[in-house]
Design a protein around this nucleic acid. Structure first.
Lengths: 156, 156
DNA sequence: AAATAGGGTTGCGTTATGAAACCAAATCAA
DNA sequence: TTGATTTGGTTTCATAACGCAACCCTATTT
């Protein structure tokens, strides 16, 4: 009946998706990372329905991904700002962006490249690394959650 | 009316979410990374409704995240296997898992730790790195998609 | 031939989403 | 001081998605 939630799942991915796993939440976080803070700006940038935006902002605040701050300006009374928790979604968002750019490139534009503010050089692809910083593929990692002895990476 | 899709969005995150941004798709990919390949096993492990599972598997195959392989075994005629595209969601899934473990730890169990299969040592936290491999926070990265000059990382 | 298992599809009721209308507080303009 | 604007919502309602159970078809065992 009700959409399944994963609050009590023993899988941390499921618990994470419970907070930012719907269509809009992660896009709101992304937009916040781009600097958007105000309700109307989220609405304009994302083209999201107002009621859905209210719901998602409220839920993100509730889950402490955003904080709602009263700034007493003209008709701009609140700002939604990333918390540390929200800010730490940065690798998730960037990994997703890189994946999207790699496998579903926009037909008419170059992928946006992110650069180190200090050096101006492009950032590296986000990847899983071992303790020494060497990149690891899925084949080289033990996945304790695995339910079979099969190689999860095989495709033939 | 219709749920919004982002096929033609100029944002690669939105395009990525279009393929794996719903409640179930990324969990199916995760389960596939754990080694699950068969329809019934996905259903058992995830507790997902059969019609939804059909829809999601079909969509993931359509988007070339999984391939459907006919293996002529007893009552186990198909396997769904990760493609290269699907396998490259590894950093996304791991980053999300680490975020979930850090900010929403399961009350009754230790976070599953992933280890380098070769050395047996735990993997590093997934993070965004500069060209030299040094970790970068959001404050140290230029975000060309930014719509304002505000510091997106500020929380006060 | 009958039972079983895998892999679905179909109905049906509940929930979520999207668009537009409406509402209320605070500010700005006249 | 009155009225128009802006921000940040809530309400209403139609449509789409989800969850569950029941059913179906094929292939394989027994």
């Amino acid at each position: 009946m009700a959409r399944k939630r994963f609050d009590d799942s023993n899988c941390s991915v499921a618990r994470a998706l419970n907070e930012v796993g719907d269509w809009w939440s992660l896009l709101i976080v992304l937009q916040a990372m781009y600097g958007t803070r105000r309700y109307v700006d989220f609405q304009k940038e994302l083209g999201i329905a107002k009621n859905i935006l209210c719901d998602r902002l409220g839920r993100l605040v509730e889950n402490q991904v955003l904080t709602k701050v009263d700034v007493g300006e003209h008709g701009c009374r609140f700002e939604y700002r990333l918390t540390d928790k929200g800010r730490e979604l940065f690798p998730v968002v960037i990994a997703l962006r890189q994946w999207g750019d790699r496998w579903n490139p926009a037909p008419d534009q170059a992928p946006l490249d992110l650069r180190d503010r200090a050096s101006g050089r492009p950032i590296s692809p986000v990847c899983v690394r071992d303790a020494d910083g060497q990149p690891l593929t899925i084949r080289e990692v033990c996945l304790p959650g695995a339910t079979s002895a099969d190689d999860p990476a095989a495709d033939s």
